[in-house]
């Protein structure tokens, strides 16, 4: 489904990803956790080439794109297989909630307007914003904006959705509504990769957790195992900052 092969990424002299290999199967929900600066977000952004990897290969579905000789058309095709939910929502500011969701459908997928509209309305209703179709993002709360961001990502019917710290910019009381929406789509069997700081959420929703530190994958495994019995010292240290050891129930 999604595969990264020895992906490396450097910004100037600093190597942020030091040869990441990761495989995500169809229907999996993978949570990527780790301290800030560990390269989680960069890893996610390499999958749709918002960051161009320095070397390595990215495979989504039947399309393999090598970092070195990625052609513009290949990158475009790769991006059309996934969609992304951003930490800062990044809704199109000059478009209403409905237009935000429709935009990709009409411009990229070339769907007729009526059909795009119908699908978009349905998705906005699904994320609980059926009453806000004509509202501009600046008039909506962070939680509402992020739910629109999720609807926009879902609308493209991607092979996988990439979520980049979807609740990190939210006020604490708004986190719940966004997590509830993500929880629902996880149940539908949509492939997702979530970079998150919400450990309990990762534990609940993810079918697999990947722990990253300093540009490498330290360890990965089912949430029950990784959170309860981390094999690596670095993982233990990281998790101990979130909760006292042993307090995770399975």
């Amino acid at each position: 489904m999604i595969e990264l092969k020895e992906v490396r990424k450097s910004f100037g002299k600093q190597e942020v990803l030091k040869g990441i290999s990761l495989k995500v199967e169809k229907g999996e929900v993978v949570a990527v956790v780790g301290p800030s600066g560990s390269g989680k977000t960069t890893l996610l952004r390499c999958i749709n080439f918002l960051e161009k990897p320095t070397s390595g290969e990215v495979i989504v579905g039947d399309l393999a794109v090598a970092a070195g000789r990625a052609h513009r058309k290949e990158v475009l095709a790769l991006r059309r297989k996934t969609s992304m939910v951003f930490q800062q929502y990044n809704l199109f500011r000059h478009k209403t909630a409905l237009e935000n969701v429709m935009e990709g459908l009409t411009v990229v997928r070339k769907l007729p307007k009526a059909e795009a509209r119908e699908r978009s309305v349905r998705l906005l209703e699904k994320v609980g914003l059926g009453a806000k179709l004509d509202a501009y993002p600046s008039r909506l709360s962070g939680g509402q904006q992020q739910r629109i961001g999720i609807a926009r990502a879902l609308a493209m019917e991607p092979e996988a959705i990439l979520l980049d710290e979807p609740t990190s910019a939210l006020d604490p009381e708004l986190v719940g509504e966004v997590l509830a929406v993500i929880r629902n789509i996880a149940k539908e069997g949509i492939t997702m990769i979530i970079v998150t700081h919400e450990m309990s959420f990762a534990q609940e929703v993810a079918s697999r957790v990947v722990f990253m530190d300093q540009g490498t994958i330290v360890e990965e495994g089912p949430p029950g195992e990784l959170f309860a019995r981390p094999k690596e010292e670095r993982t233990r240290l990281f998790l101990s900052r979130f909760a006292p050891e042993g307090s995770y129930s399975i």
Partner: peptide, 27 residues
């Protein structure tokens, strides 16, 4: 226009001319 607007357009699979015309120029 913030960088995130362009990235959102790219993440949907828009080409650069599409992203400029539909998202960046109006703003």
């Amino acid at each position: 226009v913030s960088r995130g607007q362009l990235e959102a357009a790219y993440s949907l699979g828009m080409t650069t001319p599409q992203a400029l015309r539909r998202i960046v120029f109006p703003q």
